Simulated assay, not measured.
Amino acid sequence: MTADPYPGYAWLREHDPVCPVGGPHVPGRMWLVTRYDDVRACLADRRLGSGAPVGPDPHPPGISHLDDPGHARLRRIVAAAFTPAAVSRLRDRTARTCAHAVESFAGRGRADLVAEYTREVPVAVMHDLLGVPEAERAPAAGVLDMWYRAKFQQPRDEAKLAEVLDYVRGLVAYKRTHLGDDLTTRLIESGALTGDELEVMVMTLIGAGHITTIQFLGTTVLRLLGDPGRRAALLGGDIDWSRAINELLRLDSPSHVAEYRYAGEDMTIADARVGEGDVVLLSLAAANRDPNRFPDPGTLEFTRDARPHLAFGHGAHTCLGSHLVKLETEIAISTLFGLLPDLILDIPSGEVDWGYAPTFRGPRALPVTFTPREPMISSPPGEATDHRDSTR
């Protein structure tokens, strides 16, 4: 993936805002939508469905691939776990997870922040939420590789998909006999999901809960490594965290495109005639840098009110985990730079390798150097604790 796809997005917004694109792994025609107003309208347009009308996947669909009423039913079941109040209760544990990750490399004076931090933290946080202890988890690198290759790479890696399914089934089987104070236990005990639905829900939560956050933490760390003034203002409390994170999400949208939408009927988007069954690809990243919505869109401006950004989507499929992403980002950034204030990128920023196209965009590695520090005397984050007798 090019290090900077935004000039291409700018050209499309101006000259071909609803552009036919090649999709060798998608039957029929595909359209790429790049203007903010068009993307936002399409995200809320119920004529554009989330379920493929032909060639259905043999595996049960996840929540993001369902339309109402099925989508609304599943969303209601898990929504309570992602409210601001529920997410705030994860603050202390997330802070311990971040501190423990930093301590694991703080004594060396050098690290790859993607491999050792921005990838580790989101995977750990989501497994914690689901009540999966460390002994039952795959390594973070393996989790990312499995989900990306199984769910987002084109063509899909069927062997990796089987690996993901086996992994999730193992986690669900473990939780059925190790109930605790966690989201998976609540889903099991609610009885609201069939066995297949429970497995697909856990698979969806793990995937959605780490793959975009990894990209966003990586781009945010890179931005702040190159801007010590703004970093100091943010960490010093001179800049509001919520406003800053929204602006960073707008500028460096971790998901460059939304999940496929499928036209349920013939329709017009801008001046393009989209046929029934056509695939519509909505570019969140291009929309978030539309100068007609955000003046000087390529500039990071923490005083900007970027809340209408589309990084979390819009409409019925707006990301449930938006509050969790913001909490993780605030804690991960403040912990990293608070413990290691003199972090320096060890390569020119122009040499950073970007990957995970076309759906995502994030750095593959962030080699840094810093003054080594003695490990703090602190307890590790610990494993998910089972609080109940599983034989009840």
Rank of each mutant, 00 (worst) to 15 (best):
I206K: 01
A192R: 15
L249K: 03
G338P: 14
D112Q: 07
L324C: 07
P380S: 13
S50W: 04
Y9I: 06
T118M: 03
V202T: 03
I331G: 09
R392M: 07
V26C: 14
F82Q: 07
L327R: 09
P291A: 10
E134A: 00
A232G: 12
I331K: 10
Q153H: 10
S390T: 14
H65I: 05
A81L: 05
A81Y: 06
Y262F: 14
S283W: 10
G23M: 15
P84I: 05
D67N: 09
Y260R: 15
V200P: 01
T359D: 11
L300N: 11
P297C: 14
A287I: 09
A162F: 06
D157P: 10
G315I: 12
D240T: 11
R361K: 05
P254H: 00
A52F: 06
P20A: 04
L74N: 04
A162V: 07
D227N: 15
P139F: 01
G226F: 10
I188C: 08
F312K: 07
R293K: 15
L43V: 11
D278Y: 11
L324R: 03
L249T: 03
A86R: 09
A263C: 10
L12P: 02
I63S: 10
C319G: 14
D278M: 05
V368D: 08
S104W: 02
G51W: 05
Y174R: 01
A232S: 12
A233M: 13
V102M: 06
E328M: 09
K160Q: 13
E197C: 08
G8L: 12
L165W: 05
H127V: 01
D296E: 15
P358N: 12
P295I: 15
D45H: 11
L224Y: 13
V121S: 01
A357Y: 03
A287T: 09
L310H: 07
S88Y: 02
S255G: 15
E103H: 05
G236E: 09
P56I: 08
A80K: 05
G51A: 15
L324K: 11
I77Y: 09
R93G: 10
G264E: 08
R46S: 14
V132L: 05
A150P: 01
F294K: 00
R96Q: 13
S253T: 05
H15R: 14
A124C: 04
V280Q: 01
R149C: 02
V172S: 00
H15C: 11
A3P: 08
T177G: 15
L12Y: 07
T335V: 15
